[in-house]
């Protein structure tokens, strides 16, 4: 059976590399994520000051989405029925720890509102939605590892039921020194067949 939908493009950030459709866009030598992602942001010519206020997970998700969606040359007023389905393993644990550290000592109790607002993993979807003016369906799932079957089913349902024209899907995980983002866009546009096997193949590329 032919897949009715296609993966029109995909992007990843992992191992100090940023790629789009299999092509390397940027490679850094930084060992710290904060330094790497800042250098990548500047090298890729992104202009969005709010980026620096985001937590690590949102920076990772936002920049990967930015690489992918910028290449789509979207009309922000018309092409905004893009649903988002993301997933990861560590939820918002990195930021949860930072918040916990700020409330650990009762005599030095100064929780940061700017940290607290990122103590949910789906906030990164909000950051992407704000930039691209998306008022669409979205969800964030937690799995031990990328669950291509679940992503495939979710995206297919959204497209088949007309809830979205396109779906931005993938895996965005950040925990301590470990980070990995892999996003792809599914729609009726030309591209690679949207199948479970194809998602896994692109993820492993």
């Amino acid at each position: 059976m032919n897949a009715p939908f296609n993966i029109s493009s995909y992007a990843s950030i992992r191992g100090r590399k940023v790629t789009l459709n299999g092509q390397h866009l940027y490679e850094g030598s930084h060992t710290e994520f904060s330094e790497f992602i800042k250098a990548a942001y500047k090298a890729l010519g992104v202009k969005y000051p709010k980026f620096f206020k985001m937590d690590n997970l949102s920076k990772l998700a936002f920049l990967t989405a930015e690489v992918l969606l910028k290449n789509e040359n979207l009309n922000l007023e018309a092409d905004n029925n893009i649903a988002i389905v993301l997933s990861n393993r560590a939820s918002s644990l990195d930021t949860d720890r930072a918040h916990q550290a700020s409330i650990q000592d009762k005599d030095n109790y100064y929780p940061s509102p700017a940290v607290f607002v990122y103590t949910l993993p789906n906030i990164c979807i909000g950051e992407i939605s704000i930039k691209y003016k998306l008022y669409s369906e979205n969800s964030f799932f937690i799995f031990d590892r990328i669950n291509t079957d679940h992503l495939f089913t979710s995206a297919s349902n959204l497209l088949e039921t007309g809830k979205a024209d396109q779906v931005l899907c993938g895996w965005v995980d950040f925990d301590s020194d470990s980070y990995e983002a892999f996003l792809y866009l599914v729609s009726e546009k030309e591209g690679k067949p949207h199948t479970n096997q194809q998602i896994l193949k692109l993820y492993n590329t």
Binding site: K53, Y110, P111, S112, P113, A114, V117
Partner: peptide
């Protein structure tokens, strides 16, 4: 608004 809360802190 989040910045305002940070200033209060």
């Amino acid at each position: 608004s989040i910045d305002a809360l940070e200033l209060i802190v």
